[in-house]
């Protein structure tokens, strides 16, 4: 009981610690030093319409590389932790009719939408991560509707590894051909606003999309199996 009492006191005190953060710092009135520079010549330098994407993929490319590694580790960790010999779930009641017909209708749409998101990552909002997640949700919908259908294990593996490896190769190409590691200018910037513009950004983002999609499906696949 006293633990609850102590928690209350110290959570309130912590709130007091945060209070000046809210009161002292006025809302932003104009862009900071770095973001102002990004705003001015971000588009000119990298040729990507979506400034956030250019920041995410190129300017702070190492973060995103780290980001992909984090997801990769999580899949590895989950696979590693749940490494019991899992058996396929025995036939349970079949999926409801609505789900099955809905899936057969919706599936292509969702996949198309997912591909659209990460292909147009540098033009419209969204990108590799969001696209990958949408595709993963499509696959999950498929898994739910058709119980005995399971994504083949090693296709996922190959897909994941290759896209990861290519991503790193893209980085090295940037290092050798262009200014620095993960620089997208080793490919032509192309015409602003078009699909084949902003150098390597779309390629990188689609690779990320594929990798994230494969990984999330992998995670859900491992979670989905009951163990003995």
């Amino acid at each position: 009981m006293i633990k609850r009492f102590f928690s209350l006191i110290f959570v309130v005190l912590l709130a007091l610690v945060f209070l000046p953060l809210v009161t002292e710092i006025k809302p932003l009135s104009e862009l900071g030093m770095t973001s102002a520079k990004y705003a001015e010549d971000g588009a000119a330098e990298l040729g990507a319409a979506n400034l956030v994407t250019s920041v995410v993929v190129t300017y702070r490319g190492l973060d995103t590389l780290g980001e992909v590694t984090v997801l990769f580790i999580t899949t590895a960790g989950i696979g590693f932790m749940l490494r019991r010999k899992t058996i396929l779930p025995e036939k349970k009641r079949r999926a409801s009719e609505i789900l099955k017909s809905g899936t057969s209708f919706l599936l292509p749409l969702i996949i198309l939408f997912g591909v659209y998101i990460f292909v147009h990552g540098h033009l419209t909002p969204g990108g590799g991560f969001q696209g990958g997640v949408v595709i993963a949700s499509a696959i999950v919908l498929l898994m739910l509707s058709d119980i005995n259908m399971h994504p083949d294990h090693n296709i996922l593996n190959w897909l994941e590894s290759l896209s990861g490896a290519f991503y790193v190769i893209m980085g090295i190409l940037g290092l050798i051909l262009a200014g620095g590691f993960l620089d997208n200018r080793f490919l032509p910037l192309g015409e602003f606003g078009k699909i084949f513009s902003a150098g390597a950004i779309p390629v990188i983002y689609s690779l990320i999309g594929l990798k994230v999609g494969a990984e999330l499906v992998g995670i859900l696949n491992k979670l989905g199996r009951e163990d003995k």
Binding site: S35, A36, A43, D63, F129, F192
Partner: peptide, 30 residues
């Protein structure tokens, strides 16, 4: 912060929101 027809890169500096926090949040969410 997305350039399209009615937002050209020239006057972007005083019309777009700060892109960096949203870039960071993407990583943070994942």
């Amino acid at each position: 912060p997305i350039f399209d027809a009615d937002l050209s890169p020239i006057d972007a500096i005083n019309r777009i929101v700060d892109p960096i926090p949203s870039a960071l949040v993407l990583t943070a969410i994942v």
